[in-house]
Design a protein around this nucleic acid. Sequence first.
DNA 1: CATAATCCGACTATTTTTGTCAAGTATTTT
DNA 2: AAAATACTTGACAAAAATAGTCGGATTATG
Lengths: 152, 152
Amino acid sequence: MRLSTKGQYAVRAMVDLAYYSKDKPVTLQEIADREEISINYLEQLFAKLRRNRIVSSVRGPGGGYLLANRADKISIGDIIDAVEESLTPVACAEGDVGCGRIDKCVTFKLWKGLGDRIKDFLSSITVQDLCDDAGRMFKDQDIKTGSRKCAA
Amino acid sequence: MRLSTKGQYAVRAMVDLAYYSKDKPVTLQEIADREEISINYLEQLFAKLRRNRIVSSVRGPGGGYLLANRADKISIGDIIDAVEESLTPVACAEGDVGCGRIDKCVTFKLWKGLGDRIKDFLSSITVQDLCDDAGRMFKDQDIKTGSRKCAA
DNA sequence: CATAATCCGACTATTTTTGTCAAGTATTTT
DNA sequence: AAAATACTTGACAAAAATAGTCGGATTATG
């Protein structure tokens, strides 16, 4: 029941981006340095984030990435959905249809229920919430202090 | 964020066991047939379940497995804990200690919160609950109808 | 044009998952 | 005691997912 690093990195990168992009684009290089994530790997993640319209990009010198929406409109669930395949704990609980034998499957309701809890929780927390936390935690310090060394 | 089949199989097998073992032990072969799970794989799972005192075993002809406790005292969380490593979404949220930088890590609270929700939910549902569901669903039919063909 | 940045697709190594297999141990029935 | 039944253990292995790398193409700026 582990979230892949893909999801963890994406959340960290998004918080970092929200925290540092006031108006001008932030480059992946900056984020990679602060968060200590390979820039090549970040590229993959941001490609997905862009396709899902979580971020927007500006090419060329001076370019980089921006949030596509207000930070308080982007939930953690949105981010993980974008880079990760799914938040449902088992395949048959995907969507609402199940395996076509819902009425006969004892465990379907269970996994569906669990998936709903997970989604509800992650939808209830926004990038803005985490940025506020970060602001309180770091005040003047650089935000990177927090994410460095920490596995999550 | 997928539960491995190990966890899914274990839950199905435990419900099957609870449903069919009124007093006498149920053999793995029976469970394997009904649930269409490789008996060799089931052996591994039941070894863990036994070590965690979720089930007890009876050897020799006529032997098999029994629940070690009342079905309403065994939660789904117990089962998954026994066969699966962990229910925490990220490594650093394991236990309560985090990475030793809790006070500096922006995302720790998030993952800890998610893990708590997952655990709370899975602890709130017991094998008995699922058996009751199964009883309502199948009435006279064989319970296996449900689990067969269903990925979960 | 040179440079700084994103964009894109292919490739690879490692780890985890999902089993299988074989030989052995313990127990009960006959 | 022998045979049948069932659990135990540990090694092995194929397949899938994860994590990360690499090279180059594209785009915009100055």
